[in-house]
């Protein structure tokens, strides 16, 4: 059986969070399909990288180690992945929906004429019958994602082309090590057989990577604001509440677009996914893309002037009222009750 394959992103010798999550998902898909899980690490100075990758249940790890392969540039990584896919013919290939995966994925799919679905929120195995062509397909990858402004949820399949490719954002899948001592094989690729000198046409002049200052993903309490918060000043109230409760401030896309919050705070399909113990949605209507990033929160409080805001349907507590009135009261009564 052809394998499930994961492209691992590596920054500073560390396998990216999103890649670890995909390795976990890839392992469970491979279990279901009774096939191998394979992965590739492309970069420079990769000795020992397998210690971070094999424990996720990887049967074969390919490495392409060369000074020129780090930091990431499009062309050499594309050449390696395309040629390797032609050799090992995986049935499924997963990449992070990151600035690397979204640069590399479409390039590879275009070269191989294989279908790619971006930003999937769920991946499951299922069958398909094409009634017109009278063909039955078993064990396809259902690639599920919101589309069209979040008004629909689409299930996409690639019946005939391989690999079936999908990208997934960080935080959407859960990360779980299979076995610290998992026995997998490491195969070092002869890089020069996969790349040519012309592949290195892009020169990186400068790179400023900043560790994300905010850590919404790890926060137990998330206070998220939407367009309904109304102003940047009102957003400061959310920061106050977050400071008091020991949480982080998140935002909907509409609030980020309106300039109330930085992009790194965006929660939802095109932002981060959070699963806090408590999610307080302030002035958020609750479009499906936003809900995709928070609906697994343990408890949800919605504060909204509109009693029929869609988010109220998934909330545990609904406060109908103005954020600017309710949030200061929450701060006040929290302080009173914890004295």
């Amino acid at each position: 059986m052809n394998s499930v394959f994961v492209y691992c992103e590596i920054e500073d010798g560390v396998v990216a969070e999103v890649s670890q999550e995909l390795l976990t998902k890839g392992r469970s898909l491979a279990d279901e399909l009774k096939c191998d899980l394979e992965a590739i690490a492309i970069g420079s100075g990769l000795e020992g990288i397998e210690k971070q990758i094999l424990p996720f249940g990887v049967d074969t790890l390919y490495t392409a180690d060369d000074k020129r392969l780090y930091p990431y540039t499009t062309q050499p990584h594309t050449s390696i992945v395309v040629k390797l896919f032609q050799e090992v013919k995986p049935q499924i290939a997963l990449m992070g929906a990151s600035s690397i995966g979204r640069d590399l994925g479409p390039r590879v799919s275009s070269a191989l004429h294989s279908g790619l679905t971006a930003d999937c929120t769920s991946l499951i195995i299922g069958d398909h019958e094409d009634k017109k062509a009278k063909k039955k397909y078993e064990n396809l990858l259902y690639q599920i994602r919101p589309a069209f402004g979040g008004n629909i949820i689409a299930t996409i399949i690639n019946p005939d082309c391989r690999p079936q490719m999908a990208t997934v954002r960080e935080g959407v899948m859960k990360k779980e090590v299979r076995d610290e001592n998992y026995k997998g094989e490491v195969k070092a690729l002869d890089v020069n057989k996969y790349v040519s000198d012309e592949d290195f046409a892009v020169e990186i002049i400068e790179r400023h990577l900043e560790k994300s200052k905010v850590n919404i993903k790890g926060a137990q309490v998330v206070i998220a604001g939407g367009y309904g918060v109304g102003s940047k000043e009102n957003f400061d109230l959310l920061h106050e509440l977050a400071a008091v409760l020991g949480g982080e401030v998140g935002a909907s896309r509409a609030a980020v677009d309106a300039g109330y919050a930085d992009h790194e705070r965006q929660i939802g399909q095109t932002g981060v996914t959070v699963r806090p113990k408590l999610y307080i949605a302030c002035g958020i209507s609750g479009q499906v893309q936003h809900r995709a990033g928070m609906e697994e929160s343990a408890q949800i409080i919605s504060i909204n002037t509109d009693p029929n805001a869609p988010i109220n349907a998934i909330a545990d507590y609904v406060i109908t009222g103005d954020v600017a009135e309710v949030v200061p009261k929450m701060i006040k009564f929290y302080k009173q009750n914890t004295k």
Binding site: S109, I152, N158, A313, Y317
Partner: peptide, 19 residues
């Protein structure tokens, strides 16, 4: 290569919320 297998319109399922 990609085909749309299924489209679901988004319908929110209400659960009991404290008002």
């Amino acid at each position: 290569p990609t085909k749309v297998k299924k489209i679901e319109n988004v319908v929110l399922q209400a659960k009991e919320a404290k008002k």
